[in-house]
């Protein structure tokens, strides 16, 4: 039986890991190469490197930093941020990434998903989406809208519809970022997780809001997600990764055991 996964996310801005709150006010969280090495040792199941300003600034991802980070990683590694073309995919895979995450460019030109899946296989195409609750939707039937350019620009595209479309086009999994919950450490948007996870057959990764092991547990159970992405909770060492995994495992979630301290 496949284990549920804990994924550490390194949001990188000009070579440093930062953590925002609701996509704003980045605060420094450390060096990506050092953090990657630390999380790799602490037993996280995957790492994601995200250049959070590449897309907004219309520039290429910082391949040198991503590559140096990849050198420290002996678990599955995803790179994203500013990916627009098949050549971008190829360049990022060459630095040592196993998967490539697309967001803004896929919303602007959805065919990119299919082209990448055909060329490199669905297993390495991750559709990342930034979703925000629509203020005009009634609480009993919430809706979420996708944003692009690092949460700066609304698109009018419904998050659940876009997830379905992404799966049809060939995405291998979906990273579901809640703009409302990002960096709050107040818990994932479980309703959003569930709405998307129920709509697609591919794995959905909850992202945004993790502050306690219980939040992670909720995403993997009530939220029906296959994986939970964490950032603040790991960077600021509120809860070690082993504690989060143990918490979930003790409650019956299949997790990869972390190595006992040697």
């Amino acid at each position: 039986m496949l284990a549920k996964r804990i994924i550490c996310c390194l949001d990188v801005d000009r070579g440093r890991v930062v953590k925002c709150i609701k996509f704003l006010d980045p605060r420094d969280a450390g060096d990506p190469v050092e953090l990657a090495a630390r999380y790799n040792v602490e037993g996280v199941d995957e790492l994601t490197f995200y250049d959070i300003t590449a897309s907004h600034e219309g520039r290429q991802i910082m391949l040198d930093v991503a590559g140096r980070t990849a050198e420290e990683v002996f678990i599955p590694f995803t790179i994203g941020g500013g990916i627009r073309t098949i050549d971008d995919f190829r360049a990022v895979l060459k630095t040592g990434a196993d998967k490539v995450s697309v967001n803004t460019a896929a919303l602007k030109r959805p065919e990119l998903i299919g082209e990448a899946a055909e060329r490199f296989g669905s297993q390495c195409v991750v559709l990342s989406m930034d979703a925000k609750r629509s203020a005009d939707a009634p609480p009993e039937s919430p809706r979420w809208e996708c944003y692009i350019n690092g949460g700066r620009v609304p698109t009018g595209v419904d998050a659940v519809d876009w997830a379905r479309r992404g799966e049809e086009l060939g995405a291998g999994e979906i990273v579901l970022n809640s703009i409302d919950a990002d960096g709050t450490m107040a818990g994932y948007d479980i309703e959003l997780c569930r709405a998307v996870a129920d709509a697609v057959g591919i794995p959905v990764i909850a992202s945004g809001g993790a502050g306690t092991p219980d939040h992670v547990y909720a995403a993997l159970t009530d939220g029906r997600c296959e994986a939970a992405l964490i950032a603040s909770i790991a960077h600021f060492s509120a809860h070690p990764i082993a504690e989060i995994k143990d918490f979930c495992a003790q409650r019956g979630v299949s997790m990869r055991p972390t190595a006992p301290p040697s």
Partner: peptide, 24 residues
């Protein structure tokens, strides 16, 4: 089949030395 899954060692081998029973 994509992700972390358990290994059941049915025949020991030098490469599996130190690999724990519930390893993934």
């Amino acid at each position: 089949h994509m992700g972390w899954n358990r290994l059941n060692i049915v025949n020991p081998h030098a490469l599996l030395e130190g690999v724990l029973e519930d390893a993934m």
